[in-house]
């Protein structure tokens, strides 16, 4: 019932890179097997004739929601920084991105 889909270790590593997930070699091997099974199952959708069928991105038929741009007090800096592990009291801190 499922299609044969091949997910190589390289594909798993690339997906992990795109999704910003560290993976060990053992995990790569395990994920390859698991992902292959699930994607193989999902591939059954290719059998459905969808010509002239528009995609549904959302269940509710909605138009853009607009409102007046009224100025209100938002989240304070203190509250926004409260749950971060590294800050200098004003900003979030992360490792240096550019060498000076």
């Amino acid at each position: 019932m499922n299609e044969d889909v091949l997910i190589s270790h390289d594909v798993v590593r690339h997906l992990a890179y795109l999704a910003r997930l560290s993976v060990t070699d053992e995990e790569v091997a395990e994920y390859a097997v698991r992902l292959e099974a699930v994607v193989g199952y999902m591939a059954r959708l290719k059998k459905v004739d969808v010509s002239d069928v528009p995609p549904t991105a959302h269940p509710a038929c909605m138009t853009g929601v607009v409102r007046q741009d009224d100025v209100k007090q938002g989240t304070s800096r203190k509250a926004a920084l409260r749950e971060a592990r590294h800050t200098d009291g004003k900003f979030y801190l992360v490792p240096k991105v550019f060498d000076s």
Binding site: V48, P55, T56
Partner: peptide, 9 residues
Amino acid sequence: LQAQRVRTI
């Protein structure tokens, strides 16, 4: 995209 079309069906 295929899944979204099947969602319509």
